[in-house]
């Protein structure tokens, strides 16, 4: 599988005129494969937006390099094949259709194709009926959907989205989620930065968690969610019944043990005459993983400073 986006040992240090330099990314390496939805997570100030801005060429790395669709970061030609939505999108105040056409034209579209693509992009975010209204009069959520439409107008191979659903209501979130899944189905790739962990859990094939500019966890979403050390054993015990109409009854029991303790626990259950119904790794939520990773990073920091 070929990669659409690649960071190679990228570091970014902000050097203000006054004050101490701030390191936003440290030796950051990452690969986003073609046709996947990649979740990019991290607490505030982790360096997510910096990484995205490096991809788009808004800033240059202090060291290291990156490749976007086969060309170095910042290459204007490769951006023609990319759709980008910034966090807290800011758009010119003009009718939605005219605005989306403006951005499409900046990407080289023209004539009937531009009209068709702009209409399709607005339709994808369910704003066709509002196409003639001025974006300045839109709610924040609607403006965010127009922002998504401008990202889609050039039919991009890769979508880079920074908090695309932060201002959306639950219905619009579902629309965007289905849109992302549809795009993946068409073979497009999505690089998605979001704080909405439940959304990420639902749509992302792989996830990276970055804390203080360092990549702390990377893996398939399903693997991360099942990577628990805890196992759940469901077993059935047949006990004497108190009921006058039945002599026995079944008692379902649920037991959580660590992976290490699993053989011993199974032995104990079987010895007691119980029937084991299932043994599964404990399903965790993305939120639990996220909190665990940030806590790990925090304690590692404290240890190194001590």
């Amino acid at each position: 599988m070929s990669s659409v986006l690649q960071f190679e040992q990228v570091s970014k240090v902000y050097r203000p005129w006054l004050g101490r330099p701030v390191t936003a990314l440290r030796d950051f390496s990452l690969k986003v494969e073609c046709g996947e939805i990649f979740g990019f997570l991290g607490p505030n100030g982790a360096g997510k937006t910096t990484a995205i801005h490096l991809v788009m060429g808004f800033m240059q790395p202090s060291s290291g390099s990156g490749i976007l669709l086969g060309r170095p970061f910042g290459d204007a030609h490769s951006r023609r094949r990319v759709g980008f939505l910034a966090e807290n999108v800011a758009l010119y105040h003009r009718p939605a259709a005219s605005l989306v056409k403006f951005y499409g034209a900046l990407n080289g579209l023209r004539g009937a194709e531009l009209d068709r693509r702009a209409a399709a992009a607005l339709d994808a975010v369910q704003l066709t009926s509002e196409a003639r209204r001025n974006v300045g009069k839109f709610s924040r959520g609607m403006a965010q959907r127009v922002g998504l439409a401008q990202a889609l107008v050039n039919d991009p191979e890769l979508l880079v989205l920074d908090e695309p659903t932060s201002a959306l209501d639950p219905i619009a979130r579902v629309v965007v989620r289905e849109l992302l899944l549809k795009l993946r189905g068409e073979g497009k790739s999505v690089f998605l930065s979001s704080h909405l962990l439940s959304e990420v859990e639902l749509v992302c094939d792989r996830v990276a968690i970055v804390v203080k500019g360092r990549l702390m966890r990377l893996g398939r979403t399903a693997d991360l969610l099942h990577s628990s050390e805890q196992m759940r054993i469901l077993h059935r015990r047949i006990v004497a019944s108190d009921s006058p109409t039945a002599t026995t009854r079944m008692q379902l029991q649920d037991e959580v043990v660590s992976r290490r303790e699993l053989p011993g626990a199974l032995q104990r259950i079987w010895s007691a005459g119980d029937e084991v119904l299932s043994v599964n790794p404990m399903q965790r939520t993305m939120e639990e993983i996220f909190l665990e990773v940030t806590a790990e990073a925090e304690s590692a920091d404290q240890a190194s400073s001590a």
Binding site: M56, G57, F58, A76, H77, R79, R80, V82, F84, A86, N88, V89, A90, L91, Y92, Y103, L106, N107, G108, G147, Q150, A151, N154
Partner: peptide, 14 residues
Amino acid sequence: RSRRILAVLSKSIS
């Protein structure tokens, strides 16, 4: 300041 430059420079504009 308005951050509108981001959407413009995200297109194939040098």
